[in-house]
Design a protein around this nucleic acid. Structure first.
Length: 221
DNA sequence: ATATCGATTATCT
DNA sequence: GATAATCGATATG
């Protein structure tokens, strides 16, 4: 299947304002599901729908990067809401968060998986893979490291970026609302791994990890 | 100065 | 299901 045969959204995308992000990571995470991540690079535009996120609660959350207080690395999490916190992990990958809570209070939401909408050819190029079947699409952006690679997100280029302004990287609403949302424990952490802070659009094939995890989680919640 | 570990992924068996 | 790869941030001496 050619990637260009994927239907493209026609609805306008409106940026989410600062007040949207100036709330608790739980609220922001839940409401980010169904919104659209946009990368504008000259005349090229990549868009993808947010299908999986995790909330990180700030200085009281042992699993959050802000747990040990403000450092140069995590400073964006303590700054004004609606800005990109990008960090480097396992020597290979970047992960994207958006800062939440009013300025001065840490908190963020990690983007774990998105569903590619437009710019699929460029995402495949950035990921170094070829799309042969519809099932291959999930390899583009199902995982925090994968989606950053597909969108060309790096700490040097994107950390601190204002995601409320429709510039190089931003988040918008095209009117889509998820049918059903599932809440599960967060993935890949050892501390506070029992808390239900992972938000997923129920049944989305673009969620990270093996499908069995989602099925088990869905049955549990 | 050196050691440890991680909000991951690809590639095996 | 298990594991290697890879490096910056952080802790410790």
């Amino acid at each position: 299947m050619r990637a260009s045969s994927i239907p493209t959204p026609t609805a306008a995308i409106h940026p989410l304002n600062r007040a949207f992000y100036g709330r608790s990571p739980r609220r922001v995470a839940r409401e980010l599901l169904g919104k659209v991540l946009v990368r504008q690079d000259g005349s090229e535009r990549l868009t993808a729908r947010i299908v999986e996120v995790e909330a990180y609660l700030g200085e009281k959350d042992p699993a959050a990067h802000s747990a040990a207080g403000l450092t140069p690395r995590n400073a964006v999490l303590f700054g004004p809401p609606g800005h990109a916190y990008v960090y480097f992990i396992y020597g290979n990958y970047y992960c994207l968060n958006v800062s939440c809570e009013p300025e001065g209070k840490a908190g963020g939401v990690l983007f774990r998986a998105v569903e590619p909408l437009t710019g699929i050819d460029q995402m495949a190029r950035a990921r170094g893979i070829e799309i042969h079947r519809p099932a291959d699409l999930r390899k583009l952006t199902s995982g925090p490291g994968r989606l950053c690679e597909a969108f060309g997100i790096t700490r040097a280029h994107d950390n601190g970026c204002d995601l409320t302004a429709p510039g190089s990287l931003w988040i918008g609403d095209d009117g889509n609302r998820p049918n059903r949302v599932v809440v599960t424990p967060r993935i890949g952490i050892t501390k506070a791994s029992d808390q239900l802070l992972r938000y997923v659009i129920s049944g989305s094939p673009f969620v990270s990890g093996p499908r069995i995890l989602l099925i088990k989680a869905a049955g549990k919640v």
